[in-house]
């Protein structure tokens, strides 16, 4: 039962710490504009060549239009394919993308485990003594789980191991890699390898469905040493990730949406102007100390 409780805590910690980090960034004061073009929210070809509404005289008198399609398209390119790394650092992208693609597959795999567990709890067996069950849905879930789990864990293990080696072997990267960054890669590698070890004895990932079923029914997780070690590593990783720079799934959102792609102008009478007005009313509780920083007006930033 301890393993079940641990997994509840790990999942809750992952969600809780991640949301807390989102909350902290969201609570930061309205920042100055620091956009960087191309901004994909710009309409038409401007979104690709890097133009903006400033390319029109009296831009402020024209209706404000944002291309949400452009934003989503760029988000998808960056999230799913890590486009910027692909364009600017191809060698590193191959290794990093292997690991990230592995993680994406493992997230999908987790949903498939959940689907499988719910299917079995509702009375439809996914497996028979000889493998996948006969029902089309059962076969689909069973094989999709097997493929995503095996590929996901393998890619994650390969990617994290190769990133680790490249950081050790590449003189430049080695100089800039701190101990925690090696540790992070080792941690991911350990969790992935332990998963592969468990999988080697159970190619259909039945153990995974049993763990999810146990969590859904608040039942004890039964497993051998290998599974226990894997669960402990995976759970600890879930707790650890949001507290480290591996939470860049949050950082990247804010970096793009609230900084680089945020070119929302402060038009007279707009919602933004109201936000600016409130921000200007705030009296800072601390000040910079240089002599030229006097007490008049808002001083904290431009």
């Amino acid at each position: 039962m301890l393993l079940t409780v641990f997994m509840y805590l790990a999942a809750a910690a992952f969600a809780g710490f991640s949301l807390y980090k989102v909350y902290l960034f969201a609570q930061n004061p309205l920042n100055n504009r620091w956009e960087l073009y191309p901004v994909p929210g710009e309409l038409g070809t401007r979104g690709s060549y890097g133009g903006s509404y400033y390319e029109e005289a009296e831009w402020w008198a024209r209706p404000r239009q944002v291309s949400h399609t452009g934003v989503y398209r760029e988000m998808l390119k960056e999230s799913l394919f890590m486009r910027n790394l692909f364009v600017n650092r191809r060698k590193h992208w191959r290794l990093s993308y292997a690991m990230h693609l592995g993680i994406y597959l493992l997230v999908f795999f987790t949903f498939l485990l959940l689907a499988g567990a719910i299917t079995e709890l509702s009375g439809l067996r996914l497996t028979t003594l000889t493998g996948a069950g006969n029902h089309p849905w059962a076969r689909l879930v069973y094989f999709a789980t097997s493929v995503t789990g095996a590929c996901g864990a393998s890619l994650t293990a390969f990617g994290s191991a190769s990133l680790l080696f490249s950081r050790v072997l590449d003189g430049t990267l080695r100089k800039y890699t701190d101990f925690d960054e090696y540790f992070n890669l080792c941690f991911i590698l350990a969790a992935a390898v332990s998963g592969l070890i468990v999988w080697s004895t159970d190619p259909g990932f039945n153990y995974g469905r049993e763990v999810v079923t146990a969590m859904l029914t608040f039942a004890p997780i039964r497993g051998g040493t290998a599974l226990t070690v894997h669960i402990l590593l995976f759970g600890a990783l879930l707790i650890y990730i949001p507290r480290t720079k591996m939470s860049h799934y949050i950082g990247k959102y804010f970096a793009y949406h609230k900084v680089l792609w945020d070119n929302e102008p402060n038009l007279s009478g707009s919602v933004m102007e109201e936000k600016v007005r409130k921000s200007l009313e705030y009296i800072p509780q601390d000040r910079w100390s240089a002599p030229h920083v006097n007490s008049a007006g808002r001083q904290d930033s431009l």
Binding site: F25, N28, P29, N31, W34, T177, A255
Partner: peptide
Amino acid sequence: TNSGFLTPFLLAFEYCAKCDA
């Protein structure tokens, strides 16, 4: 003291993956 640049600064400070791009 750094309200206007706190978010972009914290992001750059905390999240660098040291990929050297």
